[in-house]
C-alpha cells in the first residue's frame, strides 16, 4: 500500500488510549506482511520482529504509539444527554459542534451540541465553554440511551481522513498514526536493505495517558538502541518558531540531554549522505515522548527521537505531509542498515 493510502486507513482506525483492543489486530495485520513474527501483548502493544543477519545481533527497538485522544461517558441524564470527560489532552475549545461516535453496545452517532449564538448572553459572548458544561446528544431519551450506553464507554471523533493538495493529509489521529505509518515504511525499506541488527517495531498503547505502553515494552524487550517516532508541532500561524517545524522540510532529529548524542549524530550523518531531508529539533527537557521512558528503562537505553511535523495537534483536523513520513521511514531504515558497530 502506498504511504498516503496507508495513513488514511490508519487515521480512520478508532483506538482511544486504554481501549486499543478495538484496533490491535488491524495494526498486527499491517506488520505481518513484512515481519518474521508479530505478536500482541496483554496491554495490546503490537510487536513486529524482523531478524538481523549478524551472528550475535543487537536489538533495535522502534516505538510509535497508536492510541488516540478521545472522550469517555461519565453520566447519562434522564433527558438522554451524555456527560463526558477527556481521555488525554482534549481542548474543550476544539470540540464544540463535533460529530462523534459513542462506542456503546453498538456504535452510535452523536453530536456535541453547543448553544446557538442567539441564546448566548451578551456578557458570555467572548467566553470559552468548559467540558463539564457540554453534552453529547445521541438523539435518544434517557431510558433508551441507558439501554445502549454505559458509563465508561469511550467516544471517538468523526473526522474521516482527507487528502489535501500537495500530498498533505488531514484527520483525527495523525498524532501518532503518522508514526505507525512510518513504522511500516521502515519495514518496507528494510526489505530492500541488509541489516545486522534485530529490529523490533512496536506500535505502543496509552502514550496519551503517560507513556504507559512504552514503559511495558522497554521492560519486555531488551534493547541496545531505542528509536522513538512521534509527531512534533508543525509550523502554523501564531506558533512559536522555535517549537514548530515546517511541513515538507523533512523529519526532525532531536538533540538534547536525554537523547544519545552519539547516535543522533550518526543518524544525521546518514541523512546528509543519503540526501534525506531533516531538521534539528532542540529538546531541552525530557521531550514529553516515549524517548523519556527508553532513556531510563532497564540499565538505560541510548535513544534517538524522530518526529513528523503535525499541524493542529490534538484536534480532529491534524495535518501532516506524506513526504515527511516517507523521509522518516527512509532515514530510520538507512540508519539501522548502516549502523556502525561498537
Amino acid at each position: 500500500m502506498e504511504c498516503g493510502e496507508l495513513l488514511k486507513k490508519l487515521s480512520d482506525i478508532r483506538a482511544v488510549a486504554g481501549r486499543e483492543n478495538m484496533a490491535a489486530e488491524i495494526i498486527a495485520g499491517l506488520f505481518r506482511q513484512y515481519c518474521d513474527d508479530v505478536s500482541v501483548d496483554s496491554f495490546y502493544n503490537v510487536i513486529g520482529f524482523k531478524k538481523g543477519q549478524a551472528e550475535n545481533p543487537q536489538n533495535v527497538l522502534i516505538t510509535a504509539h497508536y492510541d488516540e485522544i478521545g472522550l469517555i461517558v461519565t453520566g447519562i441524564e434522564d433527558s438522554g444527554f451524555l456527560r463526558f470527560t477527556a481521555i488525554g489532552g482534549v481542548d474543550a475549545k476544539a470540540i464544540g459542534a463535533m460529530e462523534v461516535t459513542v462506542h456503546g453496545k453498538k456504535d452510535l452517532f452523536g453530536v456535541i451540541g453547543v448553544k446557538p449564538p442567539h441564546l448566548i448572553a451578551p456578557e458570555d459572548k467572548d467566553k470559552g465553554i468548559k467540558m463539564e458544561d457540554m453534552r453529547i446528544d445521541i438523539g435518544y431519551d434517557g431510558e433508551k440511551a441507558r439501554e445502549l450506553v454505559s458509563i465508561g464507554d469511550v467516544v471517538t471523533f468523526n473526522s474521516p481522513t482527507q487528502e489535501l493538495l500537495n500530498n498533505r493529509i488531514a484527520g483525527k489521529s495523525l498524532d501518532n498514526r503518522s508514526g505507525v505509518a512510518a513504522l511500516v515504511e521502515i519495514l518496507k525499506e528494510l526489505q530492500k536493505l541488509k541489516h545486522d541488527d534485530n529490529v523490533y517495531v512496536v506500535a505502543t498503547v496509552q502514550e496519551e495517558l503517560g507513556l504507559i505502553g512504552a514503559v511495558c515494552t522497554t521492560y519486555n524487550i531488551k534493547a541496545d538502541l531505542g528509536i522513538v517516532i512521534d509527531v512534533c508541532h508543525g509550523d502554523m500561524p501564531d506558533a512559536p518558531s522555535d517549537e514548530a517545524f515546517p511541513l515538507d522540510k523533512g523529519v526532525t532529529v532531536a538533540i538534547g540531554p536525554i537523547i544519545s548524542r552519539k547516535h543522533a549524530k550518526e543518524c544525521i550523518k546518514i541523512a546528509r549522505e543519503e540526501n534525506i531531508p531533516y531538521q534539528i529539533d532542540p529538546e531541552a527537557g525530557d521531550t514529553g515522548t516515549e524517548a523519556a521512558v527508553h532513556a531510563v528503562a532497564r540499565e538505560g537505553i541510548p535513544v534517538i527521537l524522530l518526529s513528523i511535523p503535525c499541524k493542529y495537534m490534538h484536534t480532529a483536523v491534524e495535518m501532516v505531509s506524506v513526504n515527511d513520513i516517507v523521509s522518516t521511514g527512509k532515514l530510520a531504515a538507512r540508519y539501522i542498515a548502516g549502523r556502525s558497530k561498537e
Binding site: G18, R19, N21, F43
Partner: peptide, 14 residues
C-alpha cells in the same frame, strides 16, 4: 473502576 488519573482499567479486568 473505569478510569482515574493514574490508570485506565484493563478492559479484560473491568
Amino acid at each position: 473502576k473505569i478510569k482515574d488519573r493514574s490508570v485506565i482499567a484493563h478492559p479484560e479486568v473491568k
